[in-house]
Design a protein around this nucleic acid. Structure first.
Lengths: 237, 237
DNA sequence: GGATGTGAAGTCGTTCACAGCT
DNA sequence: AGCTGTGAACGACTTCACATCC
């Protein structure tokens, strides 16, 4: 094991390995080989080994990897051995959907604060769906609340026009990691991190590939005869 | 201009250029240089020129690019000179948020059909939010409706356990491009395309970077002193 | 003069192939 | 015998640097 800077692609794959490992474990696999895991994730076996090698030696030569052990190691590498506390700003359609998004919890993510410029206008709707009242705060209180509730990650689901202002508030409040759903580039100081989630970028990608028959339509005879996956490598930014 | 295969990263950036160009045009810019556009998008100027060079010569040496013209060209390259008709399957929280997502229309995307296993349970809620009744159909009718309404893109917002089944139905219905929000790998035959949008992968990335102080926290003195953006290159898959 | 378009150089990530361990 | 861990080969993307053209 060396001490090299880890490619971002490796981290994305680690995330994928963790999902696949959970499936394999659910199926009762105790030991998995890099080839097995690779096949499941649709990547190269050497890639799997190399990715893991950035962080240590987890396998046994001639045998493979112990599934549950490896899963734990991967999660630890990703920083998922703790609970990440998040705040979301902009409780429109997307914001409230994320508030209710179950999958976060599985991965140790938890939304502990919700902000909106007009709290009263949304609190009813969200509470109703949630089945219990939810507290929606004015962004003015962000710094205070972030401190109080140990928020480390901010989610922006405002309209694009508000995104930069909100990001500034988050930075001011000491939130170092931002997940931005508003389709606009936002800027933060050094040491802060923004990751974008732009569906339309991914759609644009699809549109491009579908256009001018870059995706060759084959005989759609038996559709069930599925084959190698198209990976969908990344999410827009 | 050569005839080479275009990197996927280039397509993602094209999508970004288009957003930035719209901003610059809104600000009244008539002519933009690659340096200007690059600065706005947070990429290298040579990269901008190279990306465009895959598709032709759009600029004037010594001058730059005509903004509106370039925007149109970029959109045409991406295949956004037509309306893309989409169907969405799984009208839960996320699904209904996307149904109401305004930004799709700006980019010539339109949801023309919505499916759910239990139409009656969701139709009320969504109609209420939408302000007018919406038609939610049973997936059994997918093939018929896709044909009838010329659906080219499918969006999966079901629970992960249902995603593969839905993808199979989409393939069967002749939908060649799939945008998958369910955090699980799905498989389709050759000639079909799946792009994943996995928030948790992006969050995992954030978690990784925030862990063990890989993001160096600087003196948070003046937060407004923002600087180079962290790009958030991609969206999970 | 000034900005584009592009070969060449450089950097980064992936795949190969095999030594090394169990 | 089998599978991991890894240097080396390969390939892909990015950046540089400059010739080219307005």
């Amino acid at each position: 094991m060396k001490f090299l800077k880890v490619p971002e692609a490796t981290i994305r794959r680690l995330s994928r390995y963790s999902r696949c490992l959970e499936n394999l474990i659910r199926k009762g696999e105790k030991v998995v080989s890099s080839a097995q895991l690779a096949a499941h994730c649709g990547v190269n076996a050497a890639q799997v080994r190399k990715d893991l090698a950035y962080f240590g030696e987890f396998g046994i030569r001639g045998v493979g990897y112990f599934a549950t052990e490896l899963l734990q190691d991967v999660k630890r590498i990703l920083g998922l051995n703790k609970e990440w506390r998040m705040a979301i700003v902009g409780i429109g359609n997307l914001g409230s959907a994320l508030l209710l998004y179950k999958d976060f919890l599985k991965q140790n993510y938890k939304i502990v604060a919700a902000f909106d410029i007009d709290p009263s206008s949304v609190v009813g709707r969200v509470s109703e769906k949630l089945g219990k009242p939810i507290e929606i705060l004015h962004p003015d209180r962000m710094k205070e609340v972030v401190l109080e509730r140990n928020v480390e990650v901010g989610i922006i689901t405002t309209p694009p026009s508000e995104a930069q202002v909100v990001a500034d508030q988050m930075v001011e409040a000491g939130i170092r990691g931002i997940l931005n759903f508003a389709p606009t580039q936002i800027h933060v100081p050094d040491g802060f991190i923004v990751k974008n989630v732009f569906f339309t970028t991914v759609l644009d990608n699809l549109a491009y590939l579908l256009s001018s028959s870059r995706a060759i339509t084959k005989t759609i005879g038996d559709a069930r005869n599925r084959s190698a996956e198209e990976t969908g490598k990344e999410l827009g930014g």
